[in-house]
Design a protein around this nucleic acid. Sequence first.
DNA 1: AGCCTGACTAATATATAAACTGTTCAATCG
DNA 2: CGATTGAACAGTTTATATATTAGTCAGGCT
Lengths: 213, 213
Amino acid sequence: MPTTNLDETARQILAAASRRFLHYGYKKTTMSEIADDCNMSSGNLYRYFPSKLDIAEMFVRVLRGEQVDNLRTVLDAPGRTAAQKMRDFFLLKFKLAYERFHDNAKAFELSSELILERPKVALEWENAEGRVLGEILNEGNADGSFAIDDVPAITKILQNAAYRFTSPAVFHESGEEMLAAELNGVIDLVLDGFAWRSAHRDQSKPSSASSRF
Amino acid sequence: MPTTNLDETARQILAAASRRFLHYGYKKTTMSEIADDCNMSSGNLYRYFPSKLDIAEMFVRVLRGEQVDNLRTVLDAPGRTAAQKMRDFFLLKFKLAYERFHDNAKAFELSSELILERPKVALEWENAEGRVLGEILNEGNADGSFAIDDVPAITKILQNAAYRFTSPAVFHESGEEMLAAELNGVIDLVLDGFAWRSAHRDQSKPSSASSRF
DNA sequence: AGCCTGACTAATATATAAACTGTTCAATCG
DNA sequence: CGATTGAACAGTTTATATATTAGTCAGGCT
C-alpha cells in the first residue's frame, strides 16, 4: 500500500498525523492538531479521509507494506537455501515485530486500537506475509528440497506454529535473545518435519493423520 | 494443589468466594459478601487468607490442578502410541482452555486479573503441564518411537508451537473446529519432525542448526 | 462553480466529588 | 488468652458535572 496513489494534500495529512500518532499516541492527537500542522481547517480533513480511524488505517497500511517489502528481501538473498530463507523470514519477522512493539507503547496502542476496530486489516496483513512465505515454500518445492503439496495450508500451519513469536502481547515475558532462540528451536523441528515429508513423498499418507480423536 | 491441606473454615471461604467469582466476577465480589456467605466478619477472612487476591490464586490453583490431573489421564490411555498421546494432550488442552474461556467473560477476567498480579502462577502452571508432556516424550523415547535427547527443551518448543491454541486472547477469532483442525496440522508437522530425528538419531547435527543468522 | 472554513452537535473523554472496598487493629467475646 | 468483631483508614471505584473532540454542513471565499 504505497502512498503514491494519494493526493499531495492527503499525503501531507498522513505525514502530520503519523508524526503525532507515534509521538503522542492515537487517542491524544486531535483532528484540529493535524489540521493545524497542515495549515488547514479540521473540516477540510474530511475531504481527504472519511474519519480519523481511516487516517490511522492508512498509516498502518503503509508501515505494513514496508514490512512486507522488507520480508520480501529474504527471497532475493543469494546463496541461501529455501530452508534458510524460511528461517530468515521468521527471525526477521520476529525482530521487526519485537523492535516495533517492545517498549513502544505508542505503536502498540495504535496497533491495538486499529485491530480492535478494523480486524480485517490484521487478516490482510497476515495474508500478505503468508504470500511471501508461500513463495519461499514454492522455491523449496522447485529445487526439490521441500515436498509440500498444499502450500497455502502449510503456510497457515507455519504461521500458527510461530504465533508465539509474532504476537505483540507476549513480548514482555522474555528477552529478545531468549525468544529468538526458542523460535529457532521451533523452526529446527518444523524443518525436520519437512525433511521427513520430502524423504517420504511417495508414501500414501502420514501415519499421524489417522490418530486424531 | 488440593484443598485437603486447608482448614475447614478456609475451604468454606474458598467455596463461597469461588461461587461469587464465577457468578459475578472477581472485582464485583466484595470481601464482606464472602464473609456474609460464611456467617463471619470480613476481618476474620484475613486469619485464613492474606488477601482477596490470595483467595483467587488458591481458586485458580485448584482449578488448574484439576486440569493437570485431567491432562494426566492421557498418559494412562491404553493402546495409544506416544505420538497419539502427544496429540491427545494438546487437543485436550485446547478443548479445556476453549471451553473455559470462550464466551465466559467471568473466568477470563479472573484469569487475566490473577496473571497480571501474579505472573509466577502462570509459569508454574505451564511447568506442571510441561511435566506431563515430558512424560509422554519419555515414554516415546523408551519404546523407541521418539529419539529426543533434551526432553525439557523439546517440551518448551512444543508448548511454543502450540501457543496459538492455548492463548485465551485469541479464541474469538475462529471457531473451535477450525482451530482444532489447524492445531492438528501443527502436530502432524511436528510429529514428522520427530520421525525424521528418530530416523537420523546417529548423525552428528541437523543441517538447519548452522544456518541461523 | 468548486474548495474551504469554522461554528455547531452528539458523543466521548476528563476532572471532580461521593461512595465503596480491601485491609488493619484496638476492643470485645467466649 | 486466643478467636472474632466491626469501626476506621487509605486507596480505589463509581457517579456526576464539565470540557473536549470527531464529524457535519451552511455559508464564505477564490
